[in-house]
């Protein structure tokens, strides 16, 4: 099973300020631990929401809303995708995540499990999901 460790944005990340050397070193060491344990699948940091946009859908109408966006705590600054044998293992890895915040505020990391075929097992639910996926693709 796979889990996405989502790092929430902070004022600093939204301002495009790079973390200090110490935090970068901690994050690199953590990433290295994941690699050496064979659990890291993918990871990336995200640029500030000022460089992003949203598309609001209303029926068939599409409206582009340019960033930056308010509610910094609802934004994300990066993610790490890991493969774990159990929810408990993913929890343990996320517990070890270094504090990504350096501007004096509290940091937050959110972990979500990916939807996978094995979530449903084989059967009707898998097939309907598969159809949906094929239509989307």
């Amino acid at each position: 099973m796979r889990f996405m460790i989502i790092v929430k944005a902070t004022q600093a990340s939204e301002a495009g300020v790079l973390p200090p050397e110490r935090v970068i070193a901690e994050l690199a060491a953590y990433r290295d631990q994941l690699v050496r344990a064979g659990v890291l699948l993918d990871a990336a940091g995200l640029q500030p929401s000022a460089k992003g946009w949203r598309i609001r859908c209303a029926g068939t109408k599409r409206t582009v809303i340019d960033g930056p966006f308010a509610n910094t705590r609802e934004l994300i600054a990066g993610y790490i995708l890991i493969q774990a044998q159990s929810k408990a293992e993913a929890l343990e890895w996320s517990r070890r995540f270094p504090n990504p915040v350096f501007d004096g505020q509290d940091g937050e990391i959110e972990v979500r499990q990916l939807v996978e075929w094995e979530t449903f097992g084989f059967g009707a639910a898998t097939e309907s999901w598969r159809k949906l996926w094929v239509e989307m693709g």
């Binding site: 995708l81 097939e127 598969r130 996926w133 094929v134 693709g137």
Partner: peptide, 26 residues
């Protein structure tokens, strides 16, 4: 992995697999 079996768990040959189900990360 998930493109090579159907809902009944029966194998689907490579040529017949739906390639949009192949995992891009892997």
């Amino acid at each position: 992995a998930w493109a090579r079996v159907n809902a009944d768990g029966e194998p689907i040959l490579l040529a017949d697999q739906n390639r949009s189900l192949w995992d891009r990360v892997l």
